[in-house]
């Protein structure tokens, strides 16, 4: 029995939804509107005291953190593997997952929040009402994350996010120039980790990611998006295009 609590199928929620669909596992999808702070409801805080989403419940136990959640799924349900069969390939997957967790995810999220978050994402709330709603969040880390996001990100922070994204895009394009997939010889959890952030970029950073600038990464992105499992995962949201909404988080690595 698998219950997945998730938001729109972008970012971390997208990673876990795609992994579940790729493995062909039956699960019940529980949509959590993180822009309405539903992750801080008492029944969810009982499962994760910090209100983390995505969150998977399997046999009564809760699992969080997309990288380890996806590896758990692959190890607990071995059919349709998403990790390479050789040790070198698995190391490559973990290096990509770490790059996502160490900065690519946070940087794309910051740029997306700046572009879409404040105005469109929580558009129903006036600035004053947003601040009041943030102060009602029952988790300290959650309040801090949202206070910073509601106040708006500074230019220095956005410039750092842009340069981190630029570095990551360079690596992705270089890898895909000589290989079809990010790690090993086949589609893997590395592709699953990068895609739900990369998919934002042609709209968000058109000067950086386009058919002209990054042709190999663009055709990789289209190949991933065309996979039946990915199409099913992307249909689990409520908005037409999940890559035009954003929520604050995760945190950037605090010391280089």
């Amino acid at each position: 029995m698998l219950d997945l609590y998730h938001w729109e199928p972008n970012g971390a929620s997208g990673r876990v939804l795609i992994a579940l669909e790729e493995k062909g596992l039956a699960y019940s999808s529980c949509y959590v509107d993180v822009l309405a702070f539903e992750q801080y409801r008492p029944e969810l805080l009982e499962l994760s005291e910090r209100g983390e989403v995505p969150l998977l419940v399997h046999d009564g136990a809760a699992y969080t953190e997309a990288s380890y959640l996806c590896e758990f799924l692959d190890e607990a349900f071995p059919s349709r593997p998403l990790l390479p069969s050789d040790a070198r390939g698995r190391w490559e997957v973990r290096v990509w997952q770490k790059a996502v967790d160490d900065g690519f995810a946070a940087s794309v999220s910051e740029l997306a929040w700046q572009a879409y978050g404040g105005a469109r994402g929580v558009g129903a709330l006036a600035p004053g009402a947003l601040c009041a709603a943030v102060e009602r969040i029952p988790v300290e880390e959650g309040r801090e994350l949202w206070r910073a996001a509601a106040a708006g990100l500074g230019e220095e922070q956005l410039a750092r996010a842009r340069s981190r994204v630029q570095e990551a895009v360079k690596k992705i394009e270089a890898q895909l120039t000589s290989a079809q997939w990010l790690a090993g010889a086949a589609y893997s959890l590395a592709d699953v980790a990068v895609f739900p952030y990369f998919k934002y970029l042609p709209e968000l950073c058109p000067g950086l990611v386009s058919d002209a600038a990054t042709p190999h990464a663009m055709s990789w992105m289209r190949a991933v998006a065309a996979r039946p499992a990915v199409r099913s995962a992307l249909a689990r949201g409520r908005v037409v295009d999940p890559f035009t909404v954003a929520a604050p988080g995760p945190e950037q690595v605090r010391w280089g």
């Binding site: 699992y63 969080t64 953190e65 380890y68 590896e71 190890e75 967790d101 690595v253 605090r254 010391w255």
Partner: peptide
């Protein structure tokens, strides 16, 4: 697999949260 998940979360916490601090 559950304990492996737990081990990886600890390693991440030690490396990223505690370690960077």
């Amino acid at each position: 697999p559950r304990e492996r998940w737990s081990m990886r979360r600890w390693c991440r916490f030690i490396d990223s949260d505690l370690g960077r601090s």
